[in-house]
Nucleic acid binder design. Structure first.
Lengths: 351, 351
DNA sequence: TGGAGCGGTTGGAGCGCTCCAACAATTGCA
DNA sequence: TGCAATTGTTGGAGCGCTCCAACCGCTCCA
C-alpha cells in the first residue's frame, strides 16, 4: 500500500514538484495545459496529498477536534452537528473523538488532537478537571460546551440553566401547581446546576416550602423509581420537573402504571427537548436548549481566536425556551390546596 | 502558540535530538539519568511530539478512522464504541468522522482519513456507492459495518437480517398469531433488506397469504401513521413487526390512543433493541443485533489486514437474537381465525 | 533597443520527526 | 593485556510536502 507522492505525479506529468504542488492547491497562475496534465497524472496514480506532510510544511492544519463525552447522548450529537456545520462553513476539517464517559478516554482524545496539531478543540460535556483544560489551552485554542469552566483562555458555551428551570416552574405555577417536585440527575454532568436552578426558581415563586428534590440519575429507570418512592411515601406532588427527558419518560411510565393520568392527575416537564420528548406517544413538555447553536458558537469562538487573534475568553450563555406539549396541564380540581391523595388503581392502558 | 520541538527539548536537556526521540518513544537502552533529564525538560516546556512529523518519518500512523453515517443513531454509536474498544486494545488511535446522513459528508470524512494516512477505515452504515468504496480500498484497508458490500478487498460485518426477521415472525407465530403485518422503513438504509427478510419469513411459516407490508420510514411518526392507516382501512392485524424500535414506539402510541391494549389486543415487535425498547414504559420485544461485537469485528478485520497481511476479504455475519419483553403475547381469544374487528373506543391512559 | 514587468515554472531549504550507521565508553573474556 | 562485544549516544539523511527567491521567455513602452 505504498501510496504515490508529489514526486511520482511530477515525473509522470513531466513537470517539477513545485508545479504539482501549485496545482494541488488550486493556484491560479498555472497554464491550463499543465494543469490538466498534472490532474490527469494524479488521477491515474490515485494520488492524494499526504496531509501529514502538508501540515508539517504549512505549519497549520485547518483542523478542529471535538471531544464528545458520550456518543450516545443525543444532546451532544446535536452540538457536534452544529459544530460540524460551522467548521465546514469556515473551511476547517472537523474530527471527532469519543470518550465513553471515561475521563481517561477524554484526555486521550484531547491529547491526540493536540499531537495532530489541531488548531482548536471543542470539549463537549467533558468531565476533565479544569486545571487540565487550562493547561491544554496554553497550546491550543479550546472551547467548552455544556459545562461551566471559568479559566483564562478557555471559551465556554452554555445555556442559562437558571432560566430553564424558571421557565419550567413558571409554566407549572401558571397552570396552578404549587407542589412541584424535582427528580434530579444525581451526580451526572450538570445535575447539580439544574438542581440548584430548580430550588432557586421555587424560591423565586415563593414556593420555597414546597421545594422537594427526589434523588435520581439520568436514566428512565431512576425516574420510574423516584415516582415509586413518592407513591410509597404517599407524597406525590401535582407536578414533576424531571432532570431530563429520559427521567421524565421513566416517571411517566410509573405514573401510568399506578393508574394515574398524565397530565390530568400529574403534570410532567422534562429537560433537553430530545427526540424522546417529541415522540407522539410521550409528548413531553420540555425545556429546549439551542443545541446546534451551541456547537456553532463553540466553533466560531475558536475561529475568532485563530483568525482574529482574540485572546480574552468569551462566555456564551444561550437562552433556553419551553416547549409545551401534552404532559402538562392544570392540577386536578381538589388538589389546589392539598396534596393529591392517591388511590392506587389497577393499571390501565396496558392490560 | 508556537509549540516546542524535539530540538528545544534536546537543547534544554543538553542531549542530542536522537536521544530525546528515543526517550519519547520509550526506548529501553537509555541511562536513567538522561531519561529523567529529558522528561523534565519536556515537561517544563510542555512538549508533545508532533504527530504529523512522526507519522511522516515513521511512514505509519497507528490510526484508524471511523465514518459514521449519523451521529444520532444509537445503533451506530454502539458500533463505534465496540470499534473504539478494539482499537484501544490493539494500540491504535481511533478518530471519528460524522456525516449527517449526507453522502458528500461521508466522502469528505473518508478522504480526510485517507489524506491523514489512517491505516484503516471503518464505514458504519454509510451510503457511499460501492464503487467508491472499492476505489478507496485500493489505498487503505476498509471494513464496512451494517451494510452489504461485495467488493474484493473490502471486509464486511453485518447481522443476519433473514434470521432476525424469522425470529420475530417465529415468536409471533408461536404465540398464535397469523395476521402479522410489517411497517417498513421506506428507503432508509437497510429497510429493503428487512422488508425482504420479513416476506421470506412469512413464506417460510406458510403465511404468504397474510403477508402485508405497510409503507413507512424510520421514524415514530411513520409508525403512528401506518397504524392510523390500518385502522382507517379496518385491517388491523393481531401483530405488527416494525422496521425498527422507533417505528414500533410510534405504532404503540397510535394503538393506545385508539383504545387498544398492548399486547392484549395487538402484539408489537421492534428491531435493534435500542434503549428505547428497553424503556420500562415501552418494554418492546425487539430483535437485538450484537452491535458492540460488530464494531469490534470490523476493527479486528482491519488489523488482520494490517498486521497479518490478509488480503482476501472477510464477511462476518453475526447472529441476532430476540429479546422478549412485554409488548408481545397471544392474540385475543376471538382473533385466531378472523381479523380483529376494531371498535374505536375513547382513548384511555391519557385523559 | 534596452530595460521593466509579468505570467509561468523551478530548485532548494526547511517543517519536526525517525532511523541507521557509526562512534565512544565501558565491560567481558581468552 | 588485547580485542570483541555491549551499552549508550550521536549526526545525518530522508519522510512528502510548502514556500520563496530566482529564473526564463515574452511583451510593452520609453
Amino acid at each position: 500500500m505504498t501510496r504515490p507522492t508529489l514526486e511520482d505525479v511530477a515525473r509522470r506529468a513531466g513537470v517539477s514538484r513545485s508545479l504539482v504542488s501549485l496545482v494541488m492547491r488550486g493556484a491560479s497562475n498555472v497554464s491550463e495545459q499543465r494543469r490538466t496534465a498534472v490532474l490527469a497524472a494524479a488521477k491515474d496514480l490515485g494520488y492524494r496529498p499526504n496531509a501529514n506532510a502538508r501540515n508539517l510544511a504549512q505549519k497549520r492544519t485547518r483542523t478542529l477536534g471535538v471531544v464528545l463525552n458520550d456518543l450516545h447522548n443525543p444532546f451532544f450529537a446535536d452540538i457536534a452537528d452544529g459544530a460540524a456545520a460551522a467548521a465546514a462553513e469556515h473551511g476547517y476539517h472537523m474530527l471527532l473523538g469519543a470518550a465513553s464517559r471515561s475521563v481517561d478516554a477524554e484526555r486521550d482524545a484531547l491529547h491526540t488532537f493536540m499531537d495532530l496539531r489541531a488548531e482548536g478543540v471543542v470539549l463537549v460535556g467533558t468531565t476533565l478537571p479544569s486545571a487540565e483544560i487550562a493547561d491544554a489551552a496554553r497550546s491550543v485554542a479550546i472551547a467548552v460546551a455544556s459545562r461551566q469552566v471559568r479559566q483564562p483562555d478557555v471559551d465556554t458555551v452554555i445555556s442559562d440553566e437558571r432560566l430553564g428551570a424558571r421557565l419550567a416552574v413558571e409554566h407549572l405555577v401558571g397552570l396552578g401547581h404549587r407542589k412541584i417536585a424535582h427528580i434530579d440527575g444525581g451526580d451526572g454532568a450538570g445535575a447539580s446546576t439544574r438542581r440548584g436552578a430548580y430550588s432557586a426558581a421555587m424560591k423565586a415563586f415563593g414556593l420555597e416550602s414546597e421545594t422537594k428534590v427526589v434523588p435520581g440519575e439520568f436514566t428512565d429507570l431512576a425516574g420510574a423509581r423516584a415516582v415509586e418512592q413518592m407513591l410509597a411515601d404517599g407524597e406525590l406532588p401535582t407536578a414533576i420537573f424531571a432532570a431530563n427527558d429520559l427521567v421524565a419518560a421513566g416517571a411517566l411510565g410509573s405514573l401510568e402504571d399506578a393508574g394515574l393520568a398524565i397530565p390530568a392527575d400529574v403534570s410532567l416537564v422534562g429537560y433537553d427537548n430530545t427526540a424522546l420528548a417529541a415522540m407522539h406517544h410521550l409528548s413531553l413538555t420540555s425545556v429546549h436548549q439551542p443545541r446546534l447553536e451551541m456547537g456553532r458558537l463553540a466553533v466560531e469562538s475558536l475561529i475568532e481566536r485563530l483568525e482574529e487573534g482574540r485572546a480574552r475568553p468569551v462566555r456564551h450563555v444561550l437562552t433556553p425556551r419551553l416547549v409545551v406539549r401534552e404532559s402538562s396541564a392544570a392540577p386536578p380540581a381538589g388538589a389546589r390546596r392539598n396534596s393529591l391523595s392517591v388511590s392506587r388503581a389497577a393499571p390501565i392502558g396496558r392490560a
